[in-house]
Simulated scan of single mutants.
Amino acid sequence: VPEYGWTTQKVFQFLNFLVNGARCSIFAFRRQVQLVNPQIFQHVILDLPGLAFFTTYAMLALFWAEISYQARGLDTDGLRSGFYIINGVVYAMQQVLVWVLLWLNPNPSMLVLSKLFIAGLSFSAALGFLLYGGRLFLMLKRFPIESKGRQQKLSEVGRVATICSCC
């Protein structure tokens, strides 16, 4: 059973800490955030934690995908570059399309589009967890019972995938 790399685990925990810290700060200072002008900066402040959430959880799904691909003897070269490309496209779409359009035309339909975009990102991160977490869980389940660390990793992957997908 492949061990979780210290680098990936620590980066995930650090990014998770930053995302949740940003969300807590925004919640604590929500009245001050509502007073920020021009109004587009309010949307940027409110949307950045959602974008960082997507990147953080997509990175963990990428890590699980790499483990799953390596265990099956498949090439993992395209996974990491795909991760960077997808993140670049997501940030470009949010920053260029949504924020610029919101700045130029701040109407209620653009606000709904912005919120739907962030909701869609969270949903796609949850799908990544279900897909790659489920694959890794099933792969670990097929390992022999006497494999060292199998039960611990099986429950760890199962818990994390379930909790993160539900959240």
Score class of each variant (00 low, 15 high):
149 G>M: 08
135 R>W: 04
126 A>R: 12
134 G>P: 10
145 I>S: 06
116 L>K: 09
130 L>R: 11
109 S>G: 05
112 V>A: 15
124 S>W: 13
98 V>Q: 05
139 M>L: 15
137 F>H: 04
153 K>F: 01
126 A>V: 11
104 L>Y: 13
154 L>V: 06
148 K>R: 15
145 I>H: 07
100 V>I: 12
104 L>V: 09
134 G>R: 01
136 L>V: 05
115 K>T: 03
98 V>L: 11
125 A>T: 12
100 V>H: 08
131 L>E: 11
153 K>C: 03
140 L>T: 01
138 L>D: 01
104 L>T: 08
147 S>I: 08
109 S>T: 07
145 I>V: 11
116 L>G: 11
150 R>Y: 03
121 L>A: 06
141 K>Y: 10
120 G>N: 00
147 S>F: 08
120 G>S: 05
108 P>A: 03
158 G>R: 02
137 F>V: 05
146 E>G: 12
102 L>V: 01
136 L>D: 07
159 R>L: 13
158 G>I: 00
99 W>V: 06
108 P>T: 01
131 L>A: 14
106 P>D: 10
154 L>H: 04
106 P>N: 13
138 L>G: 12
107 N>E: 14
131 L>F: 15
99 W>D: 04
140 L>Y: 01
105 N>Y: 11
144 P>C: 09
135 R>S: 03
159 R>G: 11
125 A>E: 10
102 L>D: 06
138 L>N: 14
99 W>M: 13
157 V>Q: 00
136 L>I: 02
102 L>A: 05
138 L>A: 12
152 Q>A: 10
132 Y>H: 07
149 G>E: 13
118 I>E: 03
113 L>V: 04
116 L>I: 03
122 S>A: 14
128 G>M: 00
160 V>D: 02
132 Y>V: 02
105 N>M: 15
138 L>I: 06
120 G>C: 03
158 G>M: 02
136 L>P: 01
100 V>Q: 14
110 M>S: 05
122 S>G: 15
119 A>K: 11
161 A>W: 00
111 L>P: 08
141 K>L: 14
135 R>M: 04
156 E>H: 13
100 V>D: 07
119 A>V: 03
120 G>H: 02
160 V>I: 06
124 S>Y: 10
124 S>Q: 15
103 W>Y: 13
112 V>G: 10
113 L>K: 03
104 L>H: 13
144 P>Q: 02
154 L>Y: 07
119 A>R: 06
121 L>M: 09
124 S>C: 12
102 L>G: 04
101 L>K: 07
155 S>Q: 09
150 R>H: 01
125 A>H: 08
129 F>Q: 05
155 S>T: 06
157 V>F: 01
156 E>Q: 11
119 A>Y: 08
124 S>G: 08
119 A>Q: 09
128 G>N: 04
154 L>I: 02
129 F>C: 05
152 Q>T: 09
106 P>E: 08
161 A>C: 00
